[in-house]
């Protein structure tokens, strides 16, 4: 019994102190070296010299962070993204007189909205745009041509729209209508699902001077607007056909407001020529706006 206890104690000690591994490491390595020597003697080949460990200095966490940051910076530079956080989020203020220098030079008084080219599935998209645009730009202080007669003209002549009336025909617009600017609009889509309050509109705007043929303004905007909930019901006196039509018009109206937000004021506005130093977007711009009113 005593012997058994001793035996167990010995076995426990061996396992606890990791003695077996130490013994293995020591004697097996010696055995390996010896066999390599014997093999080298037999084959006559030189024994491989063991590589001595070089001193390795572990990198500190701080250094590791710095390296990772540098690596990220290099990757960004390779991808062409050179702006830092502040430059990206707080871009430099662009002044209107630098972007719309041609507008300030020409000082247009009237804008002729060439009948919009409606490529959307909304049958009345062009009429909705024409109405909303006329209102928005007149508030900006420009003279806008009457919608009813323009619409009548478009009904009689199907070539009288932004698709067929190209920029090359702008002198004709000046000759016939006396407008200083021709505004061409292409409506790509007007989407409003019946289950949603969201309206998505994609349109392209180009303003061309009828005097110099210069492009004064170009924007392609994707506008997403969520109507306030609960939905407004149309009143009994209202001429709107449905509340859906009202919502689409509301979205289009808001879109015009945002697209022409930075456009210089016209001669009928009190801020005319006083807004040169105000904020402006770039002249050529594609942008996406999402508006969710309270």
């Amino acid at each position: 019994m005593k012997q058994l206890i001793y035996l167990f104690a010995m076995a426990f000690l061996f396992t606890a102190c990791n003695v077996t591994d130490k013994v293995k490491d020591k004697y097996l390595k010696e055995d390996e070296i010896r066999t390599e020597d014997i093999l080298a003697e037999i084959t006559g080949e030189k024994k491989n010299e063991p590589i001595k460990d070089t001193t390795v200095n572990p990198i500190s966490k701080k250094e590791l962070k710095r390296l990772a940051k540098e690596q990220k910076r290099r990757e960004k530079e390779l991808a062409g993204d050179t702006l830092n956080f502040f430059e990206k989020n707080f871009p430099k203020k662009i002044r209107r007189d630098s972007i719309y220098s041609k507008v300030y030079k020409e000082l247009p008084r009237s804008i002729f909205v060439v009948y919009p080219w409606n490529r959307s599935k909304n049958q009345y998209g062009d009429k909705l745009f024409l109405t909303a645009l006329t209102k928005e730009l007149s508030i900006k202080g420009y003279y806008l041509f009457p919608v009813t007669s323009l619409d009548e003209h478009a009904k009689m002549d199907t070539l009288f729209n932004s698709h067929w009336l190209t920029a090359a025909k702008t002198p004709l617009i000046y000759k016939e209508y006396g407008a200083d600017i021709a505004l061409f609009i292409t409506i790509f889509s007007i989407n409003k699902e019946y289950w949603s309050t969201q309206t998505e509109i994609v349109a392209d705007y180009t303003m061309i001077s009828t005097h110099t043929h210069d492009t004064l303004f170009h924007r392609q905007a994707t506008f997403s607007y969520r109507s306030p909930f609960p939905l407004k019901d149309k009143s009994e006196d209202s001429f709107w056909e449905s509340s859906k039509e009202m919502q689409i018009y509301e979205a289009i109206e808001q879109m015009q407001h945002y697209v022409f937000l930075d456009f210089p004021y016209g001669p009928y506005h009190k801020e005319y020529l006083k807004d040169k130093k105000k904020f402006s977007h770039s002249n050529y711009m594609n942008y996406k706006i999402s508006i969710i009113p309270d």
């Binding site: 009429k127 909705l128 209102k135 007149s138 508030i139 001429f239 018009y249």
Partner: peptide
């Protein structure tokens, strides 16, 4: 003060150009 007061200009103009209204409308 706004430059102009449009009342319900957009609604009227849009309905007018859209057509399809009766004489009474």
């Amino acid at each position: 003060k706004a430059l102009y007061l449009h009342y319900n200009y957009d609604e009227l103009i849009y309905t007018y150009v859209k057509g399809g209204w009766s004489d009474k409308d």
